[in-house]
Amino acid sequence: MKRIAIPIFALALMFASCDKIEPDANGNYTVYAGPEIMWSEGSAVADHGHNALVEKYTGPRCSNCPNADAALDAIHESLGSRLVVMSITHYQEEPLAGLDTRTDDGGEWARYFGVSYRPTAMLNRTNVNGQWDLFVGAPAISGIGSSINAVGSEQAKVAIDVTATQTGDSTDITFNVELLADVDYPLNITLAVTEDSLKYPQLTPTGTDPEYSHNHILREVITDLWGVEVTSSASAGKIYQGRIKVALKSVEDVKNAHIVAFATDAATRQVLNCAQCEVE
């Protein structure tokens, strides 16, 4: 009996190790995937220039923030697509009234980069001698233009483009990441959503503007907070294309939304290049 008991037990174990998946009502054997990126071979990126990402930490109770906004708007005016701005409402900034634009993702970044004051800006998440290079206060942010120009004169390691189309409630985002130099570090891509023309009260140097128009406001990070890995080892010339379909539920009006894509060295967090697009 012992002789056959072991094989029978083994056979029972084997048959148990066979999964049976049941279909849904439509005959599909699928589960909701959440926003995940589908990867494929990419197409060449037309612009190999080095763009700058400025993350500006602001808040409705920060009276000096409008000055920083104006300074960055002026720089943006001259640089065009070479500058991408994300305006992150600091987690300690409760709204005066109306819309609360704080996000968990923005709060995590603020804590990680040690942002205490508003306004504070970061350019490409640069770390100098172990310290994050922060531009604290409106005057410092006003002078960020020369640093942005310096970034633009450097050879980019990667090039990025991004497009987004809206179909019904769904936004189809496609981006290409082209390697302009060999990669031997974890190269991540982060996708975020910003929104322009959000009207809610803002303290200004002269009082409160109840209809202040907020631009570039971070509404959500689509990918993981620190991005998703594109590659950790690849040669220059390789092009990756990612596609993700999401519902932009965080925004007030999709017409005013932008998709921001930025590539980082995940080991150092440094932003290597960035791009943004409107939702068509």
């Binding site: 999964d19 049976k20 998946i21 699928t30 589960v31 995937a33 995940e36 589908m38 596609r243 379909k245």
Partner: peptide, 8 residues
């Protein structure tokens, strides 16, 4: 693309 296969 919002649904992935429920793979055995």
């Amino acid at each position: 693309p919002e649904y992935k296969l429920n793979l055995p």
